[in-house]
């Protein structure tokens, strides 16, 4: 096991994802398998090779600075659980 269940619980908390103990146990196993695969890749010699930022060896295309979006608030808010005065409402988050 390359990671512990406590790591999974911590990451889930950082992303505000609720996972049950049972799910966390399963995820720990799955994620560990993935990380073990990565560990195998780590064995490859990469000295002197610059890390890639992206698997595709290509450059970003850029767009011109023009406004192309229109106001779609009503449509987008129709799927929101709670809205008021045009605002999305969420559980209170103030410190």
């Amino acid at each position: 096991m390359s990671i512990q269940q406590s790591d999974v619980e911590k990451i889930a908390h950082l992303a505000r994802l609720e996972v049950s103990a049972e799910q966390a146990q399963r995820l720990t196993k799955d994620l560990s398998n993935i990380l073990d695969l990565v560990d195998q890749l780590q064995a490859a010699k990469t000295d002197g090779i610059a890390p890639m930022a992206h698997p595709m060896d290509a450059e970003q295309r850029l767009r011109a600075d023009t406004v192309t979006e229109t106001n779609q608030r009503d449509a987008l808010q129709s799927v929101a659980p709670a809205v008021e005065n045009g605002l999305y409402l969420v559980p209170k988050v103030i410190e």
């Binding site: 767009r63 600075d65 023009t66 406004v67 192309t68 979006e69 106001n71 608030r73 987008l76 808010q77 005065n85 045009g86 605002l87 999305y88």
Partner: peptide, 19 residues
């Protein structure tokens, strides 16, 4: 005029969530 990753307007003071 538009956002860094989308074509939404950046005008200040618009009605909430219309941009």
């Amino acid at each position: 005029k538009s956002k860094i990753f989308s074509g939404s307007s950046t005008t200040f003071g618009a009605e909430p969530n219309t941009q």
